[in-house]
Amino acid sequence: MEWLLEPFAVSFVQRALWGGILVSLICALAGTWVVLRGMAFLGDAMAHGMLPGVALASLLGGPLLIGAAASAGAMALGVTALGRSKRISRDTGIGLLFVGMLSLGVIIVSRSQSFAVDLTGFLFGDVLAVRDGDLVFLAVALALAAAVALLGHRAFMALAFDPRKAHTLGLRPKIAHGVLVALVTLAIVASFHVVGTLLVFGLLIAPPAAAALWVRRVPLIMLGAALLGTVSTAAGLVISWHGGTAAGATIAAVAVGLFFASALATLVTSQLEKKRVHAS
């Protein structure tokens, strides 16, 4: 027990834990819909689409969050606009924006004297550098994400399982999709400075995907994703502390590992259930 609790006696690890928990809750709200809607590629593109704004803000000495929000907003608008085209598939549009924004970001970062440091910080974040102000920001982002998820629940549900019915019910699926993209954008922008854009994708996808293997109701998937994200954060920090590994990457690795463990467990449970049915 002392081995498990030792890291959390340090103040910056405590802040990292709370930061990771808040990020897990935000990602659970947005990531559940990403998994149910099959929007994983969009989530990845949105995460990396922030690079130009972050790079430009870093180069000019401005707030990184504002740069990230502006760039992610532009990416979201681009995805929404191209998604309305009948000549270009949604995946093609996302892929083009993904490559274009990422390339532009790398070009801007290459103008900086600290290219490697800037890009590494953007991709992997620094969960151990979370400050009290960051926790307040994450708490506000969580409240906003919860409000959007609650108010848009009915429209998101219809959009995820029957878009045609959503249109019939007057739920305006195109607007609902735009709001959902905004929710994913909020989760990514709020979380990237904690675990980085490359690793926030792990918390956005892995916990909801693991929870979806066990339960079917959306609120339960969100709850399960939040719990798995919290466990991943705590376990990742403990492993990082004792193993000397990168904290953000370790948290994301644990989250992905829990998904594969859940997938294996459901497979074994399914096989045992089949054997029990045949035996009876």
Rank of each mutant, 00 (worst) to 15 (best):
V256P: 02
R276Y: 09
A265H: 01
A253G: 04
F260I: 03
S240M: 09
A225L: 09
V268S: 10
G248T: 00
V277A: 12
A263K: 07
L267M: 15
A234K: 06
G257T: 12
S232L: 10
S262E: 02
L227R: 04
E273D: 12
V238D: 03
L258M: 13
W241E: 01
V256S: 04
A265E: 06
A255R: 02
A234F: 14
S240Y: 00
A252C: 08
A255I: 00
V268N: 03
A249F: 06
T250A: 02
L272H: 08
L227C: 14
S240P: 13
F259Y: 15
R276E: 11
A225D: 02
S262N: 06
V254K: 02
G257H: 03
V254G: 03
G257Y: 00
A225F: 06
G229W: 03
S262G: 15
L272A: 13
V268D: 03
K274I: 11
G229K: 08
A252L: 04
S232K: 07
A252M: 11
T250F: 00
G236E: 02
L267Y: 09
A255G: 07
G243P: 04
S232A: 15
L264I: 15
S232V: 15
A252Q: 04
F259H: 02
S270R: 12
T233D: 10
A246W: 00
S240D: 13
V254F: 01
T250N: 02
T269R: 12
T245N: 03
T266Y: 05
V231K: 04
V254W: 01
V254C: 08
L228P: 01
F259M: 07
A225Y: 05
A255S: 11
A253S: 05
T230K: 09
R276C: 10
G257F: 07
S240L: 09
L267Q: 12
G243N: 05
A247D: 04
A253Y: 00
A253H: 00
A246F: 02
V277S: 11
A255Y: 01
S262K: 06
T245I: 04
A252D: 07
V256E: 03
A252F: 06
A253P: 00
T230V: 14
A263S: 13
